[in-house]
């Protein structure tokens, strides 16, 4: 299954599921990341982690460990 972590800079995808249901994931959902939301991978930090994504028109950074639990399609 492809995850947010696998995207390349500039690549766009649609969220299709979550492998985790903890409080941190709930926080991301409140920030607007849910099934059906389109996200664009912007870049990763100089040390490779965390990453920056564009979601609903704003930029958010999160760690790769988190991104691995977010499944995407397309």
């Amino acid at each position: 299954m492809k995850t947010l972590n696998d995207l390349k800079p500039g690549e766009k995808a649609t969220i299709c599921g979550f492998a985790d249901r903890d409080a941190d994931m709930a926080y991301l959902m409140e920030l607007g990341m849910m099934e059906g939301t389109t996200v664009t991978f912007v870049k990763s930090a100089p040390l490779g982690d965390p990453i920056e994504i564009d979601v609903r028109g704003y930029h958010l950074s999160l760690r790769r460990s988190r991104a691995r639990a977010i499944q995407v399609a397309g």
Partner: peptide, 11 residues
């Protein structure tokens, strides 16, 4: 808690 980092990056 489990360490995490989620932060908005302003323009």
């Amino acid at each position: 808690g489990k360490s995490s980092f989620v932060m908005e990056l302003p323009p």
